[in-house]
């Protein structure tokens, strides 16, 4: 039973993750990403990490992907308009693949085999303690990075939207006969 559920969610996660990459329509891709996240949440639940699962849903599925969709719909991207597969993309793909392998390997050797030793369901309290003690600095750093990114986005978007208002073109337009 548990196996069946695991394979179902795994298939859902991987399949829709693949569809995200392969899909030409940005809206379809974003919704496949959503599906993939839901599948991932299901896997987390199977691992008794319900908190992680629902935080994932709340933050990524509920907010981040919704914003993605929001932007995609506003920009009205037409399917099939993306650039062809270039050298840079190839390099990024190779690098990403390598990182994935390294990461998977590291996780594989650091994680004890299933069924062994104290497999305790991580409680809310465990998470909280870890977050506010061991991982306090990383959490703060990540928080600041996000803040900086947000400020950067605000500054960038402000400058672009105000540029034509103070530019020369506007003055000239006013003088045009």
């Amino acid at each position: 039973m548990a196996d069946f559920v695991f394979y179902t969610f795994a298939l859902l996660t991987l399949g829709s993750a693949l569809a995200v990459v392969l899909n030409k329509d940005a809206v379809n891709a974003a919704l496949c990403l959503l599906l993939s996240l839901v599948g991932l949440a299901g896997l987390f639940v199977l691992l008794d990490a319900a908190l992680l699962a629902f935080v994932l849903l709340l933050v990524y599925a509920g907010a981040v992907v919704a914003l993605f969709l929001f932007i995609i719909m506003l920009l009205d991207t037409t399917p099939g308009a993306q650039k062809p597969f270039g050298k840079l993309s190839a390099a990024a793909a190779v690098l990403g693949g390598a990182l994935l392998v390294v990461g998977a390997h590291t996780v594989g050797i650091n994680t004890p085999a299933t069924g062994s030793a104290a497999h305790v369901a991580p409680s809310l309290k465990n998470y909280a303690e870890l977050l506010f003690t061991t991982y306090l600095l990383p959490v703060q750093i990540v928080g600041f990075m996000l803040l900086i990114a947000m400020l950067g986005v605000i500054v960038l978007s402000k400058r672009f939207s105000e540029a034509p208002e103070t530019g020369v073109g506007r003055l000239e337009a006013g003088k045009a006969p």
Binding site: L51, F54, L58, A61, G62
Partner: peptide, 22 residues
């Protein structure tokens, strides 16, 4: 009766926005 009941409610109900967007 899960430990994180409220979070589950918030998490799942936050998916409701997709209905409106879609």
């Amino acid at each position: 009766n899960v430990d994180i009941g409220l979070l589950a409610v918030f998490a799942v109900s936050s998916l409701g926005v997709y209905a409106l967007i879609l």
